[in-house]
């Protein structure tokens, strides 16, 4: 499935020409001198298997106009941070996939960029490494870098992002501040554990009921003011646990994309 996110990044990075519109960084159109201030993490990895880590980073450092000393200092700093110093003279083909992904991240931050584009940074990582990388990304965020981040996992997006853009087959279906979107989204989710007869639960405010697991129901309600009336009807059944929450980003996405598919 191609939704156009890599194409979008390529457009920003001037790799492919734009049909219309322009990409600006600090109100400057993007050219090669500005590109030196942008870091880019490529989805499937841009490391050449035959090179050693040191050689690879020298190449990429020069690419971003760094001097030899800067390259070495920065590389050592980041390798220390991820506790990977012993890999310095190893060939990339001998390094495991998770560690390669970390190296890939180091490539994107090596030259201390102001804009960081991360395309699926967590793919191929074990949970511990995910946490490690997440904390580093948040650190960079606190440091004041602009981060463009793409992921299929909505919990990562919710944790890291301030603004979100949902793309579906090249079309923008949602764009804006994350919290605002969540608040403005006037729907609630009621998670219920217990036995419910769906056919008897007949409330006009319910627009969707999901029954993935046995005895667990997720009931989506139109409008937060209608929650109480729905709750009343639920209470008629044998219910063990009720939990009311805002819709998660994933739910919003499913909702939006679902509507589109129906159309």
């Amino acid at each position: 499935m191609e939704h156009g996110k890599s194409t979008l990044f390529r457009c920003i990075l001037n790799i492919i020409p734009k049909d219309k519109g322009e990409a600006l960084l600090d109100n400057n159109p993007i050219n090669y001198s500005i590109l030196d201030r942008i870091g880019y993490l490529i989805e499937e990895g841009s490391l050449t298997p035959e090179y050693t880590v040191y050689n690879q980073f020298c190449t990429f450092g020069i690419l971003k106009n760094m001097s030899d000393n800067e390259i070495i200092e920065s590389l050592l700093y980041w390798l220390k941070k991820f506790d990977m110093l012993e890999y310095l003279n190893m060939k990339i083909k001998n390094i495991s996939k998770g560690n390669r992904q970390k190296l890939q991240f180091i490539v994107s931050v090596l030259h201390n960029p102001t804009l960081l584009i991360l395309d699926e940074p967590f793919s191929g990582l074990d949970p511990i490494s995910v946490d490690e990388l997440k904390s580093v990304i948040l650190e960079l965020k606190k440091d004041g870098r602009t981060i463009v981040f793409s992921s299929h996992q909505m919990e990562h997006v919710e944790l890291i992002c301030d603004d979100i853009l949902l793309l579906d087959k090249g079309n923008m279906i949602l764009y804006g501040d994350l919290n605002e979107i969540k608040n403005s989204y006037n729907k609630k989710k009621i998670s219920v554990v217990g036995k419910i007869d769906i056919e008897k639960l007949n409330n006009e405010n319910i627009f969707k009921i999901v029954n993935d697991k046995f005895d667990t129901y997720e009931i989506y309600v139109n409008g937060s003011s209608n929650v109480t009336s729905v709750l009343d009807s639920i209470k008629l059944f044998d219910v063990q646990n009720i939990n009311i929450s805002n819709l998660s980003l994933e739910d919003i996405f499913m909702d939006k994309a679902g509507i589109k598919y129906e159309e």
Partner: peptide, 17 residues
């Protein structure tokens, strides 16, 4: 070929024409 398959080229193109 090696650089293309490993997608190094895409990163290279962000630095040089």
């Amino acid at each position: 070929g090696m650089e293309k398959i490993s997608k190094t080229t895409e990163y290279m193109l962000t630095g040089i024409s």
